[in-house]
Simulated scan of single mutants.
Amino acid sequence: MSERTMTYAAAELRRFCRFVFERLGVNREDASVAADVLIRADLEGTDSHGISRLPIYAKRMKEGRIHANPAIAMKKTGESVLLVDGDNGLGPIVSVHACRQGMSIAKETGAAAVAVRGSNHFGAASYYCQMACDQGLAAMVFTNSPPGIPPWGGARAFFGTNPIAFGFPTGTEAPVMIDMSTSVVARGKIILAAKQGQPIPKGWAINARGEETEDPEEALAGAVLPVGGAKGCALSLAVEVLTGVLSGAAFGPHVQNLYNEDGGQANVGHFFLLLDVEKFMPLERFTHLMSVLLQEMKAVPRMPGVKEILFPGERRAKERAERVSKGIRLPPEVEKELAALGKELKVTFPKKLLLSRDQL
Rank of each mutant, 00 (worst) to 15 (best):
R4N: 00
Y8E: 01
R15T: 00
F16R: 02
V37S: 04
G45A: 07
T46A: 11
P55I: 13
A58P: 06
K59C: 14
N69M: 13
A71F: 12
K76Q: 15
S80D: 08
G86D: 03
G91V: 09
M103G: 05
K107T: 03
G110Q: 07
A112M: 06
Q135S: 15
A139F: 07
M140L: 15
P147W: 04
G148A: 13
A157Y: 09
I164Q: 06
G167Q: 03
T170I: 05
G171R: 10
E173M: 04
E173K: 11
T182G: 02
S183L: 08
V185S: 02
G197N: 13
I200N: 13
A205G: 05
R209W: 00
E212P: 15
E212K: 01
E212N: 09
E217G: 12
A223R: 05
V224I: 15
L225K: 04
G228E: 08
C233H: 11
L235Y: 07
T243F: 10
L246A: 14
Q256R: 11
H270T: 08
V277A: 02
V277Y: 04
S291W: 09
L293V: 05
M297K: 10
P304Q: 09
V306R: 14
V306E: 13
L310M: 13
L310N: 00
P312W: 15
P312Y: 11
E314I: 14
K318S: 03
E322F: 14
V324H: 01
I328Q: 05
V334L: 05
K336C: 15
E337Q: 14
K343G: 13
V347L: 08
F349E: 11
P350A: 09
